[in-house]
Amino acid sequence: MNRLPSWVRQHLAALRALLVLTVVTGIIYPLAATGVAQALFHDQANGSMVATGQGSTLIGQSFTDADGNPVRKYFQSRPSAAGDGYDPTSTAASNLGPEDVLDTPDRPSLLTQVCARSTAVGELEGVSGARPFCTPDGVGAVLKVFPGHAVSVNQACPATPFIPTYQGLTVQCAQPGQDYTAGRTVPIRGDAKAVVPADAVTASGSGLDPHVSVAYAELQAPRVAKERGLALDRVKALIDEHTTGRALGFMGEPAVNVLELNLALDRP
């Protein structure tokens, strides 16, 4: 071996290191980690699938009919921006921020998405869907201000602008195809107080969140109780049973697993 050229010895040493590391990190370690996970965390290691095979407690899902309408007897999940919704192969957020307030021909702004969701949730739950920076018809309350007039840019004509005037200027509806980029962008907060919780109108960062806030679950409880002919106290007790506390006792907020809660409701 000592008679081999140094470059050959170096390549043989590298090959031995590659083989050893492949066995250790590619075979022994994965088998050991898998064995420990199966022994100590069997349910979680296998995807936390529910016994009925209706999904995983780790991944949210829709409780809607074939037309995408909420099934009224079920608690509804948080919105999702992952693919067509809760798609593990497309987990993602919308990447839209709080400054995304102007609708375009290609898509509604984040603000209008939030406003539309709040309006829809309000109608479903029988409460006010109004919230700050939203018009009564569920779009972003945003003006483009020019020297002689203002335009409610997210309300296409013939819609009636959400306010008639702004600082002495007449507010007009937006003419489709008109370019309003030169105007000054002014979101209007209004005096509405949000009843619909934030997690009912915004998607999570992963798009797969299986939980909703306790506030959103309690907002839905009267509807679910009525649709199922159950006492409201019974439905609220089930919410309590499927509420998880803060991580390590201090991180995050208590949350309700929607799939587990709906399955509990379906049990005889």
Rank of each mutant, 00 (worst) to 15 (best):
E227I: 09
V171R: 03
N154C: 06
L230G: 05
A198I: 11
P222R: 02
D179C: 11
D199P: 06
F162W: 11
V214N: 13
A198F: 14
A150F: 01
L208M: 09
D199V: 02
Y166M: 05
D209G: 01
G229P: 13
E227S: 12
S206G: 07
H211E: 12
A203N: 07
G177P: 04
V196M: 09
G207W: 04
Q175E: 15
S213L: 09
S152K: 02
K236N: 15
G207I: 09
T202M: 13
P176D: 09
D199A: 02
C173L: 10
A194Y: 11
Q172M: 14
T160S: 14
H149A: 12
A198N: 12
Q175N: 15
A198P: 00
Y216A: 08
G205W: 00
P147A: 05
E227K: 12
Q178S: 15
H211G: 00
A237S: 14
G177W: 06
A203W: 02
E218W: 05
Q167D: 14
E218F: 07
Q167P: 03
D199Q: 07
H211S: 07
G168S: 08
Q175M: 15
Q178W: 11
D233K: 13
L232Y: 11
K226N: 10
L230V: 10
L169N: 07
V214S: 13
V235W: 11
A217W: 05
R184T: 15
D199S: 05
A200P: 02
Q155F: 01
K193W: 00
A215L: 08
C157P: 08
A215K: 10
A237H: 14
V186C: 03
H149K: 14
D209I: 01
P222H: 04
I188K: 00
T165I: 08
P222L: 02
V212D: 01
A159G: 09
A194E: 12
G168K: 10
G177D: 06
G148W: 04
V214I: 14
F162Y: 10
T181P: 01
Q167C: 00
G148Y: 08
S204R: 11
D191Q: 08
A237Q: 14
T160C: 07
D179Q: 10
L238G: 06
G148V: 13
V151K: 01
N154G: 03
P210K: 01
A221N: 09
V224M: 07
V214P: 11
A182F: 04
G168M: 07
A150R: 01
A159F: 09
K226A: 14
E227Y: 11
L219P: 03
P222E: 03
C157Q: 15
D191Y: 00
A182P: 01
T160V: 15
R228Y: 06
L232V: 10
T181S: 15
P161T: 04
A200W: 06
L230P: 05
H211K: 04
A174Q: 12
G229M: 13
P197C: 08
A174I: 11
V171Y: 01
A192R: 03
D233W: 00
C173M: 12
E218N: 15
V151D: 01
S213Q: 08
G207N: 09
G205N: 09
G190R: 02
V235E: 09
L232R: 08
I188Q: 03
A156S: 14
P210F: 01
P158C: 12
Q172C: 05
Y216T: 03
R189H: 04
A182S: 14
A159V: 04
D179L: 09
N154L: 06
R234F: 08
Q167A: 13
G177R: 10
